[in-house]
Simulated scan of single mutants.
Amino acid sequence: MTLNKTVLLAVLSVLLAMVTIQTGASIAKQLFPLIGPTGTTALRVGFSALMLWLVFRPWRQLPRGRNWRAVIIYGGCLGGMNILFYMAIERIPLGIGVALEFTGPLAVALLSSRRKTDLVWVVLALGGILLLLPDMRGVDALDPVGVALALAAGACWAGYILFGQRAGNLTSGGATVALGMTVAACYLVPLGVYTAGWDLLSWQVLPLGIAVAVLSSALPYSLEMVALKRLPAQSFSVLMSMEPAIAAVAGLLILSELLSVSQWLAIALVIAASLGSTLSTRSQQKP
Rank of each mutant, 00 (worst) to 15 (best):
Q61F: 15
Q61L: 12
L62H: 12
L62K: 01
P63D: 03
P63K: 02
P63N: 09
R64T: 15
G65T: 13
R66E: 13
N67I: 00
N67A: 12
N67F: 03
W68D: 01
W68I: 00
R69N: 08
A70W: 11
I72W: 04
I72F: 14
I73G: 05
Y74E: 05
Y74P: 04
G76R: 01
G76I: 02
G76W: 01
C77E: 00
L78K: 04
L78R: 08
G80V: 03
G80M: 07
N82P: 05
I83W: 05
I83C: 04
L84M: 11
L84P: 04
L84H: 04
F85A: 06
F85P: 12
F85L: 05
F85V: 07
Y86W: 13
Y86Q: 06
M87H: 14
M87G: 14
M87L: 09
M87F: 06
M87P: 04
I89Y: 03
I89F: 04
I89N: 03
E90T: 11
R91K: 10
I92A: 02
I92R: 01
P93N: 03
P93E: 01
L94M: 13
L94H: 07
G97S: 07
G97R: 00
V98H: 09
V98F: 05
V98N: 08
A99I: 03
A99F: 02
A99E: 04
A99W: 00
L100T: 04
L100M: 02
E101W: 02
F102E: 08
F102L: 11
F102C: 14
T103K: 00
T103P: 08
G104S: 09
P105S: 07
P105K: 00
P105R: 00
A107D: 05
A107H: 10
V108C: 03
L110V: 10
L110T: 15
L111S: 11
S112R: 13
S113P: 04
R114K: 07
D118H: 02
L119P: 15
L119K: 12
L119Y: 13
V120Y: 05
V120G: 08
W121L: 01
V122N: 09
V123A: 13
V123N: 08
L124K: 06
A125P: 13
A125F: 04
A125H: 12
A125D: 14
L126P: 15
L126M: 15
G127C: 13
G128V: 05
L130F: 05
L130P: 15
L130E: 12
L131P: 06
L132Q: 10
P134H: 09
D135G: 03
D135L: 02
D135C: 03
M136F: 11
M136V: 07
R137N: 14
R137C: 07
R137P: 05
G138D: 12
V139W: 06
V139M: 09
D140L: 12
L142M: 11
D143Y: 09
P144C: 09
P144A: 03
